[in-house]
Design a binder for these strands. Structure first.
Length: 128
RNA sequence: UGUGCAAGUCGGCUUGUCGCUGUCCCGAUGACCAUCGGGGAAGAGGAAAGUCCGGGCAACAAAGAGCGCCAUACUUCCUAACGGGAAGGGUGCUGUCUGGAGACGGACAGUACACAGAAAGUGCCACAGAAAACAAACCGCCUUUUGAAUUCAGGUUUCGCCCUGAGCCAUUCAAGAGGUAAGGGUGAAAAGGUGGAGUAAGAGCCCACCGCCCCGACAGUGAUGAAGGGGGCACGGCAAACCUUAUGGGUUGAAAGAUCAAAUAGGCCCCGGGCAAAGAGCUGCUCGUUCGAUUUCCGUGCAAACGGGAUUCCGGGGUGGGUAGAUCGAUGGAUCCCGAUCGUGAGGUCGGGGCUAGAUAAAUGGCAAGCCUCUUUUGAUUUCAGAAGAGACAGAACCCGGCUUAUAGACUUGCACUUUUU
């Protein structure tokens, strides 16, 4: 199983980030707000992920760094739950700053399963 | 031994495993670029923070002068520079000791200082108080004028009576005219103080001493100190009010800015050529003057020098990749450590050695185990053993020098107090 998380799997293109926030669908599953966007021209390619932590929720930069690292780590270990189909993902953490890694990991698995189910029920039509 | 204060140092460690960032090596895709795979070593701080000062760097602007605005403000030094630092001076406060009858003075230690100017001008000084600044006059004290009232002072006596003396005087009250700043009271602050002489009462009005002001030999680079001389004594405080004086400052800030569209940028490869004392400071320019130097490695050679390579620059050719993306800026520097030496010190000079974090929707992490430290608790006289919990402040973003603020705990040195033993 591939547990790596290379640069190509992380979202860094400014254009795609704008599209994700403007056109992407979203749902909320504590402690994440999840944004996702599927594009016809990207289908079949690797998924790309973005992780963000609210500055309002966690004031200190060290605290934000810690949470981002834990979320990224949990995504890295659970990304096999989601099929590779060029999905653009955004995780915005809004939970407790002292949430331990084990809890984050459990929630991440739950979130990815839900997302996977949603994607398989609504296949991307070439007309839209 | 413990506690406190000051200065300094450190600020969790180890292993395994799964990952991330750039970099080097190897392999594959035709290729040193790109992609994929494997491996090696490296990868946050003392404050990385606040963005408060100073500098480098960059772009833009700019004849010169004046005005304005902002900053700084004891002296000398350190420094690339600074509003930073060092040493020194001054003033205030506190403590100890000490001289004097006293006013007050001296020495030492600690501590604070936004320490230029209040005898250039303007303004302000609440409340209280008579008065808050060319002093004034509420109470009080004294002299005197007018009016009114009373005899008044002393002795004796329980008191009254009485006795002696003086009465256009004296005392009291009211109003007016003047003198006064001793005393009272107010205030953060009231125009020298102590003691005397003097006076109607008083007063630096006068005298002695203390304080203060002015001049000041001499000492010191200087801030400043100061022998001595003179002066009856003014010149209240606030400049963190305006202001004056002196010095400095063009503006912006790496999200600055430079570059790239089939190549003319930048990377890599190949070929050819240049390069060795220029240069830097002072200056608008010239002259002049000062500083400074002969790139580095290997080979031959005593050396001079010669040959080859590297670095750097120029020219030519080749080559691969990316497109809101890429390259440069951008990580080796006023650098750190050790030693010697000069200096009271901040620091300077010389010698030796060491140092690849460079991200860019932004790496330096997750998990497990063990150790270390601290706190609580249980057992045990202490050493010790077990259990539970915690490990601060905090995340590089162009780079340096400072300042300020946050910080669990540990260690070192010095000083003070304390305990035990001798």
């Amino acid at each position: 199983m591939n547990y790596r998380l290379t640069k190509s799997e992380r979202l860094h293109a400014e254009k795609l980030i704008k599209e994700l926030f403007h056109e992407g669908s979203s749902f909320f599953l504590y402690p994440f707000k999840v944004l996702f966007l599927r594009k016809i021209e990207l289908s079949g390619q690797t998924n790309q992920v973005l992780i963000s932590v609210s500055k309002k929720k966690i004031k200190r930069a060290t605290g934000r760094n810690l949470i981002k690292r834990r979320v990224r780590e949990s995504y890295r270990l659970n990304k096999h739950l989601l099929p590779q189909d060029g999905v653009i993902l955004g995780f915005i953490f809004v939970g407790n700053p002292e949430m331990p890694f084990s809890e984050i990991q459990a929630k991440m698995a739950q979130t990815l399963s839900k997302l996977s189910k949603e994607i398989s029920e609504n296949p991307l039509s070439h007309d839209s």
